[in-house]
Amino acid sequence: MHLAYPAVLAALLFSVGVYGVLARRNAVLVLMSVELMLNAVNLNLVAFDAWLRDALHAGQALTLFTITIAAAEIGLGLAIVLLVFRTRGTPDIDRLTALGDRVAERQNSADDSVDASKGQAVS
């Protein structure tokens, strides 16, 4: 079999995962997209393991690794999402902007009016 097929498929799958992570509003869906990305990686690992005919079968061992870690990660991820849901009341990511510079936005509008009038270098 031509190695390009699994490689291309993995790449596309990975990109779909990326889209999912960046575009989805709900945190759980983001975690699902992460799963997709991990699976793309697994496909690559297996394909290359088969291509290199590795004696150690490192590819497949690593795939097992990723699968277990993915499981652990999804467990923890969901725990965190639950916690967020319980405290913020919403799992949506784009409402969780506590670290943003919101304070700055309010002050900016105040600054702009002052700047226009004074125009003096900050002394």
């Binding site: 390009a4 490689a7 291309v8 790449a11 596309l12 990975f14 990109s15 779909v16 990326v18 889209y19 992570v21 960046l22 575009a23 989805r24 509003r25 709900n26 869906l29 949506d92 990511i93 784009d94």
Partner: peptide, 26 residues
Amino acid sequence: DADSGNRWVALLVALAAAGTLVTLVV
């Protein structure tokens, strides 16, 4: 509202990543 406001940028980034990776891999 399943998708956040960021989706067009996300689409762009995803497509760019896909394009790059595919050309690289092929």
